[in-house]
Amino acid sequence: MRRAFLALLLRDLRLAARLGGGGGMAVFFFLVVVAIVPLGIGPDKALLSLIAPGMLWVALLLAALLTLDRLFQADFEDGSLDLLSMGALPLELVAVAKALGHWLTTGLPLVVVAPVLGLLLNLPVASFPALLLAMLAGTPALSFLGAIGAALTVGVRRGGLLASLLVLPFYIPVLIFGVGAAEAASAGFEGDAGVQSLLFLGAVTLGSFVLGPVGAAAALRANLR
C-alpha cells in the first residue's frame, strides 16, 4: 500500500513538472498578481508595506485555487481514476497522495517565492520568518480542503469556478489567521496575537488533513458511480 501511495505521488510530481502539467502556473500567477499591485496602488512605500501581508495571502489563495480544478479532473476524464479506485489503496489515501502532490508542486513553490515578492511590496525583512512560517503552516490546508471542492466538481466541465465557490468559505480561516500572523510579525510581535494566529493556522491545517481526504473520497465515490 505504501508502495502504491509513493508511486502515485511520484507520478503526480513528474506530471506536474512536465509540459502541460501546470506545475509552474500557480507560481507564475502569484508573481504576476503581486508584481502588478505596486503599479496599481502607486509607489507609496508605507501603504505597500501595510497591505503587503494581506496582498500576499490573497494572491497565494487565488493561485492555489487556479490549479485546483484539475486535481482529480484529468484523471477522471482519461479513466485513470477508475483504475486508481481498483488498487489496494483506499480512495482516501488516493486523495491524500493527490493533495500532497498538489501542495508540493503548488503550495511549497509559492512559499519559496513569497519572500522575493515580499521585497517587491516593501514588507519589513524582519517579518519574513514569521510570514514564511505562517505560509508553511497554512498552505497545506489550501490543498487538502481544496481537494473536497475538486472532487465534488470532478464531472463538471469548467468546474473550476464551481469548485472555487465551494471551497472559498473554507479558505477564509486560513486567510484570516495567516494575515493575522504576518501582521503581528510586521508589528514586531507585540503581545501574543501572532503566536495565537499561528497556532490556529496549524489547527486548521491539521483538521484539513482529516476532513479533506475523507470528504474528497466520499465525493469521488459519489461521482464515480
Binding site: R11, R18, D78
Partner: peptide, 9 residues
C-alpha cells in the same frame, strides 16, 4: 474505452 494514459509520460 478510456485508456488511462498521460501524454507526457
Amino acid at each position: 474505452h478510456l485508456d488511462a494514459l498521460k501524454p507526457s509520460m
